Computed example of a mutant assay.
Amino acid sequence: MKLDISFIWQAFLQILPAIPTTLFITVLSVLIGSIIGTFTAIVRIYNVPLLSQVASGYVTIIRGTPMITHLLIIYYAVSMLLDSFSKQYHLDFNSSSIPMMAFAIISFSITAGAYLSEVVRAGILSIDRGQLEAAYSVGMTTSQTLRRIVFPQAFAVSLPNLSNTFIGMLHGSTLAFIVSVVDINAKAQIVASTNWKFFEAYIAAALIFWGITFVIERMTGLLEKRFSVFSRGGVK
């Protein structure tokens, strides 16, 4: 087999338009997952009755099963429930009218939430207990303490793990092709199907993923430097 360098470049250019789709799925999933993860982490840290057990079960189950399983379950479960509800109440609606991307975002958000909950929990628990007691002593409520004292420091501490989770979700987003979403990986398959040069097309896709990952790592590095300056009391 002879490597076609010229086709790698052609495939690269043809795959580029799929980048916004991949980034949209990844960013939105991580944002929603951050909300889910933060809520789950707080519930577990403060041991909220019943909710803490549910949160622990959610994290254990999601982290113990593959992303592809989550996607398939969400796709079929949501479709069945909506179609059943529509049929029961004679509504002019069916699951086929829902954009396929929505299933991917719901699934990936649930997955991201479980992983990010552990990142957030570790970040919060790393904060010195004395700072919390000091905040309470000056009259701050729990929500004020979390918002003003805990979350900013926890975010700085958790940056490397947050970056890793984001990159993991970026790479995991390639599973979206299962529900017919044309992301970077799916676009590579489509491009390669014209002449069966899958190897070259996947090399082009890999280069794009590497480039995006490199940018994320660089941005994380800059944020870490910025936060380290403020933690030393310096200004730039």
Results as ranks from 00 to 15, higher is better:
residue 225 K to R: 15
residue 27 V to H: 03
residue 133 E to T: 09
residue 130 G to Q: 09
residue 98 I to W: 06
residue 86 S to D: 05
residue 74 I to V: 15
residue 222 L to G: 04
residue 28 L to W: 08
residue 30 V to E: 09
residue 139 G to R: 08
residue 196 W to S: 15
residue 34 S to Q: 05
residue 2 K to Q: 15
residue 118 E to Q: 09
residue 77 A to T: 13
residue 9 W to N: 10
residue 128 D to S: 13
residue 77 A to H: 00
residue 98 I to M: 03
residue 44 R to G: 08
residue 25 I to S: 02
residue 162 L to K: 00
residue 64 G to T: 10
residue 229 V to Y: 06
residue 180 S to I: 00
residue 181 V to T: 04
residue 53 Q to M: 12
residue 86 S to I: 07
residue 71 L to A: 13
residue 55 A to D: 04
residue 18 A to D: 04
residue 177 F to D: 10
residue 47 N to E: 15
residue 79 S to E: 09
residue 22 T to N: 12
residue 46 Y to Q: 13
residue 232 R to L: 06
residue 66 P to N: 07
residue 202 Y to L: 06
residue 103 F to Y: 13
residue 157 V to G: 09
residue 229 V to R: 10
residue 216 I to L: 10
residue 85 F to H: 07
residue 29 S to R: 03
residue 193 S to P: 10
residue 101 M to H: 05
residue 47 N to G: 12
residue 190 I to E: 13
residue 171 H to P: 05
residue 99 P to Q: 10
residue 25 I to P: 01
residue 64 G to P: 07
residue 50 L to C: 05
residue 184 I to Y: 02
residue 79 S to Q: 09
residue 169 M to L: 15
residue 141 T to Y: 00
residue 95 S to I: 00
residue 188 A to S: 08
residue 41 A to T: 06
residue 173 S to G: 08
residue 225 K to M: 12
residue 67 M to A: 13
residue 12 F to H: 06
residue 178 I to H: 01
residue 176 A to K: 00
residue 94 N to I: 05
residue 168 G to H: 07
residue 110 I to W: 03
residue 55 A to L: 05
residue 25 I to M: 12
residue 37 G to L: 07
residue 198 F to T: 13
residue 234 G to S: 13
residue 117 S to R: 02
residue 190 I to N: 08
residue 146 L to Y: 13
residue 163 S to V: 10
residue 205 A to G: 04
residue 201 A to Q: 02
residue 101 M to R: 08
residue 200 E to W: 01
residue 58 Y to H: 08
residue 62 I to D: 04
residue 40 T to P: 07
residue 93 F to T: 09
residue 19 I to H: 09
residue 69 T to K: 02
residue 15 I to A: 10
residue 10 Q to V: 11
residue 78 V to F: 12
residue 133 E to K: 11
residue 52 S to P: 02
residue 139 G to C: 10
residue 66 P to Q: 09
residue 218 R to E: 10
residue 17 P to F: 05
residue 1 M to N: 09
residue 18 A to P: 03
residue 8 I to A: 01
residue 216 I to Y: 02
residue 194 T to W: 03
residue 104 A to Y: 01
residue 231 S to D: 07
residue 186 A to F: 08
residue 155 F to G: 12
